[in-house]
């Protein structure tokens, strides 16, 4: 048993505070994504509503923004925000701040598109039958349109959260010590004593991501089924 643990390199985890440090890294990844999501959702709702407006210029601008964010690899955005702005504007952003800004830019775009999709998928006769029943505009939105939009939106936005959590694995590139970076540090520090550490530590990281994302993804699936 002891041997197996050494062979797979799992023993490293039990040295010192290594495992706690990994969990700390995971927490960094989680709070950065949760803060980003919390900011992205209201901004995204605003953007989605604006995207359904008839104003052509507004629509075009938002469309370009959305496509730009989608096409650019997140890593490039992170580099621009972290290294680029320092030279160009003299901003001294921390890695965490740069990550949150990039994730919010990305999350707002994606969320905006989800909200737009949910809003235009509500058939016109839902508005008309509400009107015909004498509901005022506010009542129509409050009791008919928004509840339906939210039902379509929640499973999709939960998926966006898991995508963000996974994408935090990139932010080690701009010096944020999240779970993957901690893993690398542990492996490096124990290179001599536990040469097999890489396998065990990365396996643990894999499991940690899984434990963080799986319940969220199950919740999305459950809600989707419940409201379909």
């Amino acid at each position: 048993m002891q041997d197996l643990a050494v062979n797979l390199g799992i023993d490293v985890l039990f040295k010192g505070t290594n495992f706690i440090r990994l969990l700390g890294g995971l927490w960094t990844a989680l709070w950065i994504s949760l803060v980003s999501v919390a900011i992205s959702i209201p901004l995204g709702i605003g953007m989605g509503v604006l995207m359904t407006k008839k104003n052509r210029i507004l629509k075009a601008v938002l469309r370009v923004y959305l496509e730009f964010i989608r096409i650019m690899p997140q890593l490039v955005l992170l580099f621009i925000m972290f290294f680029g702005t320092t030279r160009a504007f003299g901003w001294d952003l921390s890695g965490e701040a740069a990550s949150i800004i990039v994730f919010v830019l990305w999350g707002t775009a994606e969320m905006g598109d989800l909200v737009r999709g949910a809003l235009i998928s509500i058939p016109k006769h839902q508005y008309e039958s509400s009107e015909a029943l004498g509901l005022t505009n506010t009542q129509t939105y409050l009791y008919v349109i928004i509840p339906q939009t939210i039902r379509r939106l929640i499973p999709l936005s939960i998926n966006l959260i898991t995508r963000m959590i996974k994408t935090t694995s990139l932010i080690l590139m701009i010096g944020v010590v999240e779970v993957l970076k901690v893993a690398q540090q542990i492996i490096e520090a124990n290179r001599m004593t536990s040469p097999n550490g890489a396998f065990g530590v990365y396996l643990t990281v894999f499991l940690l991501y899984f434990i963080a994302c799986w319940p969220i993804s199950m919740l999305a699936k459950y809600l989707e089924k419940k409201w379909s």
Binding site: H125, E128, A132, R151
Partner: peptide
């Protein structure tokens, strides 16, 4: 009161 051709009940 009005009833439409398309089924216009609120699905939620």
């Amino acid at each position: 009161g009005m009833v439409f051709q398309s089924y216009d009940l609120f699905p939620h």
